[in-house]
C-alpha cells in the first residue's frame, strides 16, 4: 500500500510534483503513466525516501520509508538510473545489499536465478547491457521479498523475451497479494500489464482509474454515422453534451452519444443508416489526448513557430 497525500516537490523554481494525491492498493498492478518529465521518477524517489517532499506526505505500508526497521522487506525498488557501482560484480552488489538486513546468502542465489543472471553474476556490472542491468535491478527489488514493489520503467532496454518475462513477473507478484507500482511512458505497455492506471502530467494528477474503465472510455468516444439524410440527423442529435462533425459528404462523427442512442434516434425518425460504427481510438491516442497539454518538452506546433 502506497499513500501519496498532497505531495509536492520543488527543485528551486521548478515544480516537479504538484499537490499529488493517490493511493496504490495491494493485489493489483498499478501503472504510473505520464510523458517524460511528468514527475514519475520524482514521485517514486519520494516514496523511497530518497527525495524529501517539499510539502505533503508520502507513506508506504503505513509509514514513511525511513521509519521501517527492515525497508528492503517492505519495499523493493528499481529506480530509473542504475544505482549500482560499476566496478562491483552483480553478486557482490546483492550480497552487500543483503548484509545490511541480515538476509541470508541463499536468498541472494535465489534472486540471481529468478532473474536469469546466473551466468554473469560474478562479472563486473560495468560491462552489463541495459537489459542485464534492469534484471539486476529487479533482483535487488525482490531481495527482501517485499510487500510493495516500486519499479521505474522496468521494461526499458529489455528484449521482447525480457519484456514478456517482466509482465509475467509483475502479474504474479500482484497475484501473491503484493502492491505493484510500475511506471512507464508507454500506454501500450501498461495496457498489457496494469489493472489500474494513475496518469500524471506536469506533476499533476490527470487520471486515477481502473484500466477497464479507461479502455471503455477510450473506445466508446466517437461514433461514425453514414447516412443519406445526414443534415436532418445532425439536427436531431444536437444536444449540450454532443458534438457532431461532418467528416465528408454523408458521414458524421458524433462525440458524446453511444451508437445505441444514435441508432434509436435514427429509427424513431425513420432515417436509414448506411453505417453506424463506434470508432475504437487506440489507448495510446487516448493517453496522448489526455496528456497533450502536459507534455513538458513537447514539439511545438509548426504554425505557432512560423507566426512568431
Amino acid at each position: 500500500m502506497i499513500e501519496v497525500v498532497g505531495a509536492t516537490k520543488r527543485y528551486g523554481d521548478r515544480v516537479a510534483v504538484d499537490d499529488l494525491t493517490f493511493t496504490v492498493k495491494p493485489g493489483i498492478v498499478t501503472g504510473f503513466l505520464g510523458p517524460n518529465g511528468a514527475g514519475k521518477s520524482t514521485t517514486m524517489r519520494m516514496i523511497m525516501g530518497l527525495d524529501a517532499p517539499t510539502g505533503g506526505d508520502v507513506r508506504v505500508n503505513g509509514k514513511h520509508y525511513a521509519e521501517h526497521t527492515a525497508p528492503l522487506r517492505e519495499v523493493g525498488a528499481l529506480l530509473e538510473a542504475r544505482a549500482v557501482h560499476t566496478g562491483r560484480s552483480a553478486y557482490n552488489h546483492l550480497r552487500a545489499m543483503a548484509l545490511t538486513h541480515g538476509i541470508p546468502r541463499s536468498r541472494v542465489d535465489e534472486v540471481i536465478d529468478l532473474v536469469g543472471l546466473g551466468d554473469v553474476a560474478r562479472k563486473r556490472v560495468g560491462g552489463f547491457s541495459l537489459g542485464m542491468g534492469q534484471r539486476l535491478g529487479v533482483a535487488v527489488a525482490l531481495l527482501g521479498d517485499p510487500a510493495t514493489l516500486v519499479l521505474d520503467e522496468p521494461v526499458n532496454g529489455l528484449d521482447p523475451e525480457g519484456v514478456r518475462w517482466i509482465r509475467h513477473l509483475l502479474r504474479s507478484l500482484a497475484a501473491e497479494g503484493r502492491t505493484v507500482f510500475v511506471s512507464s511512458h508507454l500506454m501500450s505497455e501498461m495496457a498489457l500489464t496494469a489493472d489500474h492506471l494513475i496518469i500524471i502530467g506536469k506533476g499533476r494528477l490527470i487520471a486515477n482509474t481502473p484500466m477497464a474503465e479507461f479502455t471503455e472510455q477510450a473506445s466508446g468516444k466517437v461514433v461514425r454515422v453514414r447516412t443519406e439524410d445526414s443534415a436532418r440527423l445532425r439536427e436531431l442529435l444536437a444536444g449540450p453534451e454532443v458534438s457532431v462533425t461532418a467528416v465528408e459528404r454523408g458521414v458524421l462523427e458524433v462525440h458524446g452519444l453511444s451508437s445505441t442512442a444514435i441508432g434509436l434516434v435514427a429509427r424513431d425518425n425513420a432515417i436509414a443508416l448506411d453505417e453506424l460504427t463506434p470508432v475504437v481510438a487506440s489507448l495510446e491516442e487516448a493517453f496522448m489526448d489526455l496528456t497533450k497539454d502536459a507534455v513538458e518538452f513537447g514539439v511545438h506546433d509548426d504554425t505557432e513557430r512560423k507566426a512568431s
Binding site: 526497521t69 527492515a70 525497508p71 528492503l72 522487506r73 557501482h85 562491483r88 557482490n92 550480497r95 552487500a96 545489499m97 548484509l99 545490511t100 538486513h101 541480515g102 538476509i103 541470508p104 541463499s106 536468498r107 535465489e110 529468478l114 525482490l142 527482501g144 521479498d145 518475462w165 509475467h168 513477473l169 502479474r171 504474479s172 507478484l173 497475484a175 501473491e176
Partner: peptide, 27 residues
C-alpha cells in the same frame, strides 16, 4: 508465471549498525 519467493526469510531481517558495517566491509 515466475514466483518471487521460494524460501522464507529469517524473522530477524532488519537493518542494524553492525550489519551496515559488515555490508560496507564487503563493499
Amino acid at each position: 508465471a515466475p514466483t518471487a519467493r521460494k524460501s522464507t526469510l529469517p524473522s530477524d531481517v532488519r537493518v542494524t549498525l553492525p550489519r551496515v558495517v559488515r555490508s560496507e566491509w564487503l563493499k
